[in-house]
Each structure stands twice: as structure tokens, then as C-alpha cells.
Simulated assay, not measured.
Amino acid sequence: MAAKTIAVGEDELVACCGSTRFAQELAKASPFSSLEEAIAAARDVWFNKVDVNGCLQAFSAHPQIGQQTPSSSAHPTSAQWSKGEQSTAFATATTSSLQQLAEWNARYYQKFGFVFLICASGRSTEEILAELKKRFPNRPIVEFEIAAQEQMKITELRLAKLFSSKAKETSTGDHYPAAVAKKAEEDRVSIIGGHLTAASEVSAGKTIQAPSRTRPPITTHVLDVSRGSPAAGVEVYLEIWKGPHPRPVFGESDAGGWVFQGSSTTDNDGRSGQLMSIVDVVNPGIYRISFNTSKYCPTGFFPYVSIIFEIKESQKREHFHVPLLLSPFSFTTYRGS
């Protein structure tokens, strides 16, 4: 008997995420043989194919945390799911905590321009409020990336609900035994539960085996903070240190020590192309990403920018996103997600 597959349409996927670009791209990859396959495809689409506007569209589909009134742009199913996801928060809320949430939500939106986004399932009002206060001091670009990660967690939970519902429909239509349908649903819940547990363990500093990647282990993007927009057309080079010493020695010439790994040019969203192969395990070592900033900004102070960072043996299964925030007379970076 041929393996069962589950097809998902654009309208159903808009309910899961809120981004029409996400829904269109993932619907093209449908049908899927398992929830795990769908989640892998969803992560690839969300992190590699959805631009800033698509992310903001997804964010806008969520109500402010702590409010039961759905967003005007929310899909009806999405609005229903939002209430369920916030059920613990509502059950643990007090008049005081809801008032604080409303005040901090307003401060957050005024600073960042989008609603505070968090995977609220199973979280109390106090937990959510504490996380909001913790994230509020973040720089906008850092907070945007955190929000994108939280959006993906929510999307994965909703995909699990969608697949569970479709599995029941398929089982009923094909007259499958009830035990088979129950087992399929348990398997799907186990997959999504394990995925979210793994994410929690990473944040707690535990070492786990990562799933197969859908993007290279080292990525970057460039934002022009002087214009408030992505920097397109920036040449990017990735190298690894293979010199006579374990690492470059400060003050000594490093000529011939760096080995080319890959190059690309940022697209209209400021994202670099594929700088290296998609592998589950990246080689530990010292890496350098260089940006040809003089070509992008000929009048700027920096002819080029190089960022050097180290991947340790214990980190070889992690993802390393190293963005560049650039202006004509300054630049900064951080380890993103």
C-alpha cells in the first residue's frame, strides 16, 4: 500500500502563519508524508524565502498578548487558535497583571512597531510579562529576529493541529481502525513536542543532536542602519583559518592562513546567498566573514569589514548567523539566530 500523504492549501497555511508568501511557498511543496517533513519545509520557507514584509504581515495577524480580541487581519481559524494558545495566560491572569500587560504591550509596540510575539502555549501571565520586560531593552533588529523565532514555534504548533485534524479526516474517509488514527495523532504530537523540547534545551545550554539542516550552518545578512533598510549588492566572503598556529596570532602576519570557503552577494533583503554547503556538522575552527563595504558605500570610512569568530567542538551542530549592521562611519555585529 502506498504511503499516505497530506496535502495542505494556502488558506490553511495562512491560518498557521499569517504570511501569504509563506503560505504560497509551503503549499507548492505539498503534499507531505509526515508532520516532520512539513516542519522542515516550513522552517526553510520561513527563514530563507520570506522577506521582512512577509514577517511583519505574519506578526500583524496576532492579537496583543493578553487580549482576546482578534487582530483585524487574522484568519478566523488563527483567531480561534490564538485563544487556545493563551488559555493558560487567561486562566492565571489578574486585573493587575492584565493591566501591566496592556501597558507594556503599548510600550513595546511604540518602540518596535509590531506586537510582542511569544509562543504563549502553557505560559502563565506572569511568565509572559517577565519575558516581555526582559526583551524590551533589545535593539530592534535583535528583537525582530527573536519574534521571527517565536513565530516559527507558533507555526509549528499550528501545523501539528492541522495535520492531526487532517489525519482524522483521512482515517474516517478510508475507514481506518480508530487505533491507527490515534497512533498517527500520537506520533505527530511526539514529533512537535520533541522539536519544542529540543529548542528549550538549546536555550538552557544543553547539548542535543540537532535535526537535519535546511540552510547552511553559517549565514549572514547586512542592514544599512543609516537608511533603515537592507543593504543589497554587498559582496561577502567566508574563510576558515588553516595557518601554522591553531588560531591567528595577534600582531603577526596571517598571510596564507585563511582558506576560502565561499562567496556571495546580498539580495534585495540584505541576505547573503549560500556561503557553504548545507551540512549537519560544521568543522570547528576560526572563521572570517568579510564584506566589501567600499563597493556598497564608496564614501564610507571602512573600505571593507571583517568579522572573525570561533566555532567550538561542542557547537558544531549549531547554527551561526553573523549579521552586519552598517553605516558610513560605524558598524556592529552580534550572534543572531
Rank of each mutant, 00 (worst) to 15 (best):
191 I>T: 11
165 S>D: 00
261 Q>A: 01
174 D>M: 07
128 I>Q: 00
280 D>C: 09
239 E>Q: 11
238 L>K: 14
3 A>Y: 05
333 T>C: 07
233 G>Q: 06
148 A>S: 15
123 R>K: 15
183 K>T: 04
96 S>Y: 07
85 E>K: 07
82 S>K: 10
244 P>C: 05
237 Y>M: 07
140 P>H: 08
125 T>C: 12
168 K>E: 01
282 V>H: 07
196 L>W: 05
151 Q>G: 14
283 N>M: 07
255 A>D: 10
315 Q>Y: 02
87 S>M: 03
337 S>L: 13
96 S>G: 09
204 A>W: 08
243 G>V: 04
100 Q>H: 07
333 T>Q: 07
181 A>V: 01
296 Y>F: 13
105 N>Y: 05
260 F>S: 14
298 P>M: 08
129 L>N: 11
154 I>Y: 03
307 I>Q: 12
68 Q>N: 07
167 A>C: 03
46 W>A: 04
206 K>Y: 05
59 F>M: 14
259 V>N: 07
186 E>R: 12
77 T>F: 14
292 N>W: 02
144 F>I: 03
113 G>S: 11
285 G>K: 00
28 K>A: 14
315 Q>W: 01
78 S>L: 14
82 S>C: 10
270 G>T: 08
245 H>R: 10
80 Q>H: 13
134 K>G: 05
222 V>R: 03
213 R>N: 06
98 L>F: 04
102 A>V: 02
316 K>D: 12
14 V>W: 14
86 Q>S: 08
144 F>Q: 11
309 F>K: 06
20 T>Y: 12
311 I>Q: 01
176 Y>I: 00
185 E>L: 00
40 A>V: 02
197 T>I: 06
128 I>K: 00
224 D>S: 06
217 P>M: 02
255 A>I: 02
152 M>V: 02
125 T>F: 01
331 F>Y: 15
305 V>L: 09
108 Y>R: 13
32 F>K: 01
60 S>V: 00
318 E>R: 12
331 F>I: 00
171 S>D: 05
59 F>D: 14
277 S>E: 15
110 Q>T: 03
4 K>M: 03
241 W>D: 10
143 E>D: 09
6 I>A: 00
139 R>F: 04
32 F>H: 05
157 L>W: 11
73 S>T: 15
127 E>P: 06
233 G>F: 08
232 A>Y: 01
47 F>Q: 11
12 E>P: 04
306 S>G: 09
264 S>P: 00
201 E>I: 02
308 I>D: 04
328 P>I: 00
131 E>A: 15
243 G>H: 07
199 A>T: 05
213 R>V: 03
212 S>K: 06
325 L>M: 13
54 G>E: 09
289 I>D: 03
126 E>R: 05
106 A>G: 03
172 T>N: 10
204 A>V: 01
154 I>E: 03
23 A>M: 12
140 P>K: 08
124 S>F: 02
307 I>K: 08
176 Y>V: 02
310 E>Y: 10
259 V>L: 05
67 Q>R: 09
3 A>K: 12
185 E>Q: 12
17 C>D: 04
62 H>S: 10
250 F>W: 12
289 I>A: 04
290 S>C: 08
